[in-house]
Design a protein around this nucleic acid. Structure first.
Lengths: 210, 210
DNA sequence: TATTTTTTGTTGCAAAAGCAACAAATATGT
DNA sequence: ACATATTTGTTGCTTTTGCAACAAAAAATA
């Protein structure tokens, strides 16, 4: 997420916040939370990486969203109408703050610094979340695996301000993120290399067109 | 969008708002706005229906979002990284309020009723937008045309609290919305009928499974 | 460090989706 | 009400994608 807000600048103070806030730690592979029914749960990722994933009835895994430091997530952003299980899984060691959204999105008058800062930045965090989701939709609506790959690479290149960049997760995960079959994606990556659209050195990609 | 907020309950008062607000009318087929660069444009649809559409280089049209009464949209929710044109097109006669986001999302102290109501409801509107976008992502990440159709029908059925419901746009648009080829979608619809998953009478669909 | 697990790269074959084209039915505008 | 434009329904053919399976490489863990 591209925001000036960095949770770690004030995290030291979170315990003095008037609201019930839990700070929890998770190891790689653990489930941080599952979206079951609206409990107004609102989370902030303090450190680590995590994915919101869905497993469907055919065993397909889809990475719905990818979270890194200072990203927000939680059931409060979902109205569950799906039959499928939605899980937030830790991809590395994670620290997470867990709030109830009702408690946090209004300014309080108890003068707790952490609460004040959070509610000040909340609109910006939420706006950023919307732009992220819109970019995600842009990607997912691309018709072919090739367009999805190039679209995603463009995004990463723009972020990195460089034609060369690193794919932030495994190729297996990338396929789940773009919602395509892994072997079909590998085939397409090979074609993109052969046709000189990209240069690829394991996870390092360079765009060869302007 | 599923919110208690209905813009038409207070729209009479919008001219007394301290902020520069424009109310514009559009006819079916007209472009309400195009997303070019971040101008912090924030719009509310007062009446009518509109789509956010993208035309790609192959001439494919994609309906990114569908808006109806009281829905919010605008460049402020986008950070433009795409090469493609993004347009909001009126699907019927539309009335739209156009604001600058900066001017509206903070409470003012000039006592203008309309501003007060808007900023009161804004968090709810925005949260609803996020849940809508998440549902959209849920749909788009489905792997097959069949799953997209059934996923979307489930959603409509849930909204309507009924196994029978009406598709809110043309089948041509539905294909553009689900990001699939129209003829392939028609084929799949026929199969769903033949296999007794659904009953279909033009735009009226009934789900035949529980 | 050795062992186990996960990821990467690849392929042949099957299934699904896209493309193009057309007639018939509807809807729209004048 | 008429003429025009759009949508619907359909199909044959082509291309793309998905599935299954496997060996090699890399990463994680005991």
């Amino acid at each position: 997420m591209t925001t000036s807000f960095n949770i770690n600048e004030f995290i030291y103070d979170f315990k003095n916040c008037c609201n019930k806030v839990q700070k929890k730690s998770f190891n790689r592979g653990q489930t941080i939370t599952s979206y079951i029914r609206n409990r107004n749960q609102f989370c902030i990722l303090v450190s680590g990486n995590a994915d919101l994933v869905r497993y469907d009835l055919n065993g397909n895994r889809t990475i719905i969203e990818h979270f890194s430091e200072s990203d927000i997530f939680g059931e409060v952003f979902y109205s569950i109408t799906t039959n499928n299980e939605l899980l937030v899984e830790a991809k590395s060691k994670c620290e997470v703050l867990i709030y109830n959204y009702q408690d946090i999105h209004h300014k309080c008058n108890k003068g707790c610094k952490f609460h004040e800062i959070l509610s000040e930045y909340l609109p910006e965090l939420i706006l950023n979340k919307i732009t992220d989701l819109n970019m995600r939709i842009e990607l997912l609506t691309k018709r072919t695996t090739r367009d999805k790959l190039l679209g995603y690479f463009n995004l990463l290149s723009t972020k990195a301000l460089n034609k060369t960049f690193e794919i932030p997760f495994s190729l297996t995960d990338l396929a789940d993120y773009l919602s395509v079959d892994r072997s079909a994606m590998m085939r397409e990556l090979k074609l993109l290399k052969d046709e000189n659209f990209i240069k690829k050195d394991s996870k390092k990609i360079t765009l060869l067109y302007k």
